[in-house]
Simulated scan of single mutants.
Amino acid sequence: MPPENERLSQERAYLIFNGQARHTIERLTAWFTHQWSGRAPATFNRHLDALRSAVAFWMDQGWLAADPTRRLRRRDRAPDRTRALTVADIEALLDLEVPLREKTLWTMLYETAARASEVLGLDIANLDRRNRRARVTRKGSAVDIIVWQTRTARLLPKLLAGRSRALCSSLNAELASLWQPATWTRSLGGPGCPTDALRRSSTS
């Protein structure tokens, strides 16, 4: 923006907020309330914080003489009353008659407490099945070790039986299909990869 236009914008802002301060506060309060009052308290507060951050900058620059957001108040967040699943609930879930891929993924997520993206990013070659562990990349690119228990240790050999590292080296290729539409037609591993057969069976 050219310097002269920037100065005009600053002067316009100054006149709007200071020359008509009372009306501006009322209009801003009404607009913000209408815009965000129907949203969750966390969303309302986040946008209010962003607006107040901008206002603080404008006041530091001398463009505002008073805070036009002063009538707005942050909202209290409702307490989280959701309950965690009981051990019995989890056991019942893992005992459901579902395809081996789903059962392995659910079990591995539960036993390792890893994120889905971390498990789906595992390579077969990097699975230390003897010691029941694998190296994963956490959020923020931190490298960590996940460890699983007996149930996963029993399921993995069944899931990976006959998998060729040369043709299909990624556990991602096997499990990621859980997140694809049923009509998905591209094989993750290419022709010859075991997931190709799985893909064909899921779309037939």
Rank of each mutant, 00 (worst) to 15 (best):
G162A: 09
A166S: 15
L120R: 07
L155S: 02
T152W: 07
D144I: 10
R151M: 14
L159H: 09
N131S: 10
L167I: 14
R154A: 15
N131P: 02
T150Y: 00
V143S: 14
L120G: 04
A153G: 08
R163E: 02
T137N: 13
C168S: 13
A161Y: 15
L155A: 05
N126T: 13
R132L: 04
L159P: 04
T152P: 02
G162F: 09
G121W: 00
A153H: 10
V136N: 00
D144V: 07
L120N: 03
Q149L: 14
R130H: 09
A166T: 14
A161S: 14
L167S: 04
G121C: 05
V136A: 01
V147S: 07
P157H: 12
R165C: 00
T137V: 15
R130D: 06
K139P: 04
D123T: 06
T152N: 06
R165T: 04
R132V: 04
A166M: 13
A166Y: 08
L156R: 07
R129F: 06
L155P: 01
R138D: 08
A161N: 15
L127F: 03
L167E: 06
G121F: 01
A125P: 06
R132T: 05
R154L: 15
R130V: 08
V143T: 14
S169T: 01
A142R: 15
R151C: 06
A142P: 02
A166L: 12
V143P: 01
T137K: 12
R135V: 08
R129E: 15
A166D: 13
W148I: 01
R154N: 15
V143M: 09
A166N: 11
L120P: 03
P157W: 13
L159M: 12
S141H: 13
L127V: 03
K158V: 15
L156M: 10
T150G: 10
K158F: 13
R151G: 01
K158C: 05
I145N: 14
A166C: 10
I124V: 12
D144A: 14
R130Y: 01
G140W: 06
N126G: 14
L167Q: 13
P157S: 07
A153F: 03
R165I: 11
I145F: 10
R151T: 10
V136M: 01
L120S: 03
D123W: 14
R130L: 06
I124G: 00
N126M: 04
V136F: 01
